[in-house]
Write a protein that binds this DNA or RNA. Structure first.
Lengths: 214, 214, 214, 214
DNA sequence: CATGAATGAGTTTTCATTCAT
DNA sequence: CATGAATGAAAACTCATTCAT
């Protein structure tokens, strides 16, 4: 009797599942072979569907990449709420900023590995990534730095450059992971230690402060 | 009497010039379209030669990429001598390390833009780049940090992680440039300002040091 | 009720048909232009499919040649059973040996014409052909000659050389056909006459027997 | 003082030498890689000249093949005089016919190996070879057989077919050699033994003659 | 919706041939 | 004549995309 109870609901769920499965497969194959090196056949096999089926869910190959991209966007949006709830305390602010992003990368590492090379090489995607991820985060950092300077918590540094330095630090770590550096492969403990190192760096620097310094 | 003393000398020079011209074209096209997106036809047109001519100078498309790579290696080697001549003074050391690398990137920016996406996506190249550029520079940084800690110039920080953080900062800046961030496009003045910001950061941190801090 | 019992059966048959059609086209084009002279485009046109379709059935151009080769192997195997059923009678043995092979060539003449030039020029294929066709047939001939000599049916001739002579006779006729000699183009009647001539030759020679002979 | 004595004579000799050297190289490379598989560069290297030089002596690649071909023709012509000086004696006639041809093949084996696959696969060359070598030799054989039958030396056999059988025997042996059969690789002793076997076969057959024979 | 065979445009690569030196 | 770099047509092969079943 349950023949057509919620045809759209169940079907919708099925469709979503398929989409996600295909995206998972795409992420995995893109990571292994790069976007151009990955064929639709590869992805179809990884997703255990026929070639043609992919085109029922995505307009074309590029849409798979954008699909992965959008996944990150969706998730980032959620996380950002947390991130933007910045603390009064400077340490908490730094730890919040980097902690959220490091966790984000950790959770979606496969997708990042798949996307980043393409982001760097494809003008279209480059702009999209910059607009979606980089610019907002730079803005957040810049605003925070500006505010902290006004509040006298930070020195008088070039806000724009400082924000870039902060973001570069984060992005560079991500790249180092992609490059295979074994000392900082993503894990909760590694990230915790890193957070500590970074926090110390940003706020106090590494040099032994001479008495009466600055 | 000098009628035929350098038949090969002139020819050799010609060959080298052609090679370089083709590599220049390749760098430019790779940057614009990515390695996979660039066709030999594109590169040939950019170099103003016929398709087949490229194969008189390079075994295949991949050899173009490796040719670009080797260019960096050759040049880096020269620069490294300077880099390794580290100063006693902490500020000079930081400025030396980053200054040399930023200058290197500035000088060969086109090649970096062309290569980095491939480095991140191609396992082969990834290893090659890591072994040639990343590992040595990490080692230099680590050794310096270790020495400075021993000498009491730096705090007791995790040397391994600190070195990664320093390199990530550098690499992240490079990526931000590739991503098109306008605030830090490579130029002598930008780099000089950056150097200052970074130096301050690494050695003294950004927070306003409260009296009796740490 | 038989709605979906042979979804793969029909498809399988279709695939086999396509494969055979493409092989037929390849045989025809190879014969006309030689293996190297034949382009995939030529073959695709002859088979009335698109270029790419051929690669859905054969890994590469060489596989077409090997496909033709394997066809002969399959068929030869069947025929060989007959061939090895050698008669007591000498005449029957000769007629059996040559009859079977001449019939085989007649039936697959196109394939032979396509393959033989390549067999003679390509080391790989040469070995393959020699191992698959020549060596076994030489062995059969040698064994037969040996046995017949033991039984006193044949003179004391060099078995090894005699077997080669017999095979050479057969192969040479095949080549003469390929070369276009009109007097012996394959047909049942030509082959029958040839058989007779050969049989006479091998067993009794052509010279007029001295008095008392025959 | 010998500055320009016989400019044309010496030069002519030089030119001929170069031509021959290039043809030698071509024969060797064709044999090793087949006509299509051999590149002009390969041949130029084997002949120790530049690519372009070849075109000073031959119009194009095909002309190299025809050049090899013509070499055989020239030589065959000489040999044929001997061959056509047929003996009264049947044995001598057979031995003359096959002996000359086997020797010819032995002397120019490389050229035969290089040419035969192309002869079998290229319509043009096929006709040329047939007209130049096969037809005349078939005619000689046919004429001889005809004459011998008239003279009562040979039985009443089909002259046309018999001639084909004789030629096929010869050509088949050549092919067996090209195919790599080790038992009959060309050498003076092998050929001598073969001659004997063939002579016996053609004239007396291999079966044990009934009482009163031989 | 799922399938996967068919398609053909596009890519890399080879190589016979030309021609300026 | 010798050279060998330059050429560009042509070949083998790939693969994103379509569509009949």
């Amino acid at each position: 009797m349950d023949d057509q109870p919620k045809p759209s609901a169940r079907r919708q769920r099925h469709i979503t599942q398929r989409r996600e499965a295909i995206l998972d497969a795409a992420a995995s194959v893109f990571t292994a072979k790069g976007y151009s090196g990955a064929s639709i056949k590869d992805i179809a096999e990884a997703a255990d569907v026929a070639d043609g089926t992919i085109y029922n869910y995505f307009a074309n190959k590029e849409a798979l990449l954008l699909g992965l991209f959008d996944r990150l966007v969706d998730l980032e949006r959620v996380d950002n709420r947390v991130a933007s709830a910045a603390a009064d305390n400077l340490d908490d602010a730094v730890i919040g900023y980097f902690g959220v992003h490091l966790a984000h990368v950790r959770a979606h590492y496969d997708v990042f590995r798949a996307i980043i090379p393409e982001v760097l090489s494809t003008p279209d995607l480059r702009q999209r990534y910059y607009g979606t991820f980089v610019a907002p985060l730079l803005a957040v950092a810049e605003a925070q730095i500006h505010a902290r300077i006004s509040q006298g918590q930070l020195r008088q540094i070039d806000e724009q450059q400082a924000a870039r330095v902060v973001y570069a630090l984060f992005f560079g770590l991500l790249c180092l992971r992609v490059l295979g550096d074994e000392a900082i492969q993503p894990s909760e403990s590694t990230d915790a230690a890193l957070l500590n190192t970074i926090n110390h760096l940003l706020l106090r620097g590494w040099s032994v402060s001479e008495p009466g310094d600055d």
